[in-house]
Nucleic acid binder design. Structure first.
Lengths: 188, 188
DNA sequence: GCAAATTAATGATTTATTCAAG
DNA sequence: CTTGAATAAATCATTAATTTGC
């Protein structure tokens, strides 16, 4: 795809300012949430492409949009978690001092059947709560906002995880990863 | 293009770990430095592509590599600047107190003929030193590391800035920018 | 009811940090 | 130790909710 994906062009607003952004359909959000909640919180490039194709069923979307979505989802999930943790420990700190600090601050942090791919090498790193976000999955809102119906039980990730058509593991000219990769593309 | 750029595959190391990285040729570095120093410190997607094509003349390289290069160049340039600034103000602070704080800490911060594109909207924001990085260009090391010769005066950016073949201003299906854009691509 | 004005969500971009190849 | 690659955090900007005055 690279740039001009497929469907609607036209939407290319004036060259200066304006700009419109992707607005995911409810069905698309269901899928994305499903995937995220099942543990795949940072899909690799090929996974992202697969997800994008899946989403296209319900409306135009690009790889970058999917990437952005997961990036933001992860980030905001983490932030919410931190806030909860902060307010929790603040509340408990009013009386006891040396106690709180449970493993992840009360969050369940389960991890469904999908192995979170890259485990981030688990080497030395900053963040106190390592393990941090990789498998953290949902953060309370497993509920879906609207009247949508898509068989929630058909574990969408099973579709993605199935190592079907693995033809062509692209790998560009030089380095990069494509493994733990999933990162910068920047340009739409 | 999307993912698999163009030339040599093969280099796709094992699917797990390893990875090799792009190693820019001296000529490529000259070009990149030239562009950066002439003021284009954050090329847009289309500019990035143009640059990449230019570099390919001297060896395999992908858009992502170019993107990374500029990202790192900006980042490290800024860091060095901060360090210089820090040590400078620290040095001057030994005697006088309420004085240092010159505009940019002694750095010249000129700006060549290229208008730095996006001025970041200058809306309300945090960061103290706004204006920050956009047009900052060189940070003292205008020198090039090796014995290379490419007419420094033929302002490479003029080639890039020239609005030649502007056919096909891509604009993907949904949103994104491509204007102020230049950002995430992530996947190699 | 309805738009203009505000606010809340969230998609997109940039910056700071970290990891690791060479 | 330098620097390419990758990720997380912070920020910007646009769109949807909502509030408000009519």
């Amino acid at each position: 795809m690279d740039d001009d994906s497929s469907s609607s062009n036209q939407s290319c607003e004036r060259n200066e300012t304006v700009r419109s952004r992707w607005n995911p359909k409810p069905e698309q959000i269901v899928i994305l949430e499903s995937i995220f909640n099942s543990g795949m919180v940072n899909p690799r490039k090929d996974e992202t492409v697969r997800i994008r194709k899946m989403l296209e069923q319900f409306g135009a979307v690009g790889d970058a949009n999917v990437f952005y979505w997961f990036q933001n989802r992860r980030s905001r999930s983490r932030r919410r978690q931190r806030q909860i943790q902060a307010s929790l420990s603040a509340a408990s700190n009013s009386n006891e001092e040396q106690f709180a600090r449970s493993s992840t601050g009360g969050a369940i942090q389960f991890q469904t059947n999908f192995v979170p791919s890259s485990v981030s090498s688990s080497s030395s790193s900053s963040s106190s709560s390592l393990g941090g976000v990789v498998g953290n999955a949902n953060d309370g809102l497993f509920l879906f906002s609207g009247p949508m119906e898509i068989d929630q039980n058909t574990s969408i990730t099973s579709i993605l995880c199935s190592p079907t058509d693995n033809s062509k593991l692209n790998c560009s000219s030089s380095g990069s990863k494509d493994h733990l990769c999933n990162t910068v593309l920047k340009y739409k």
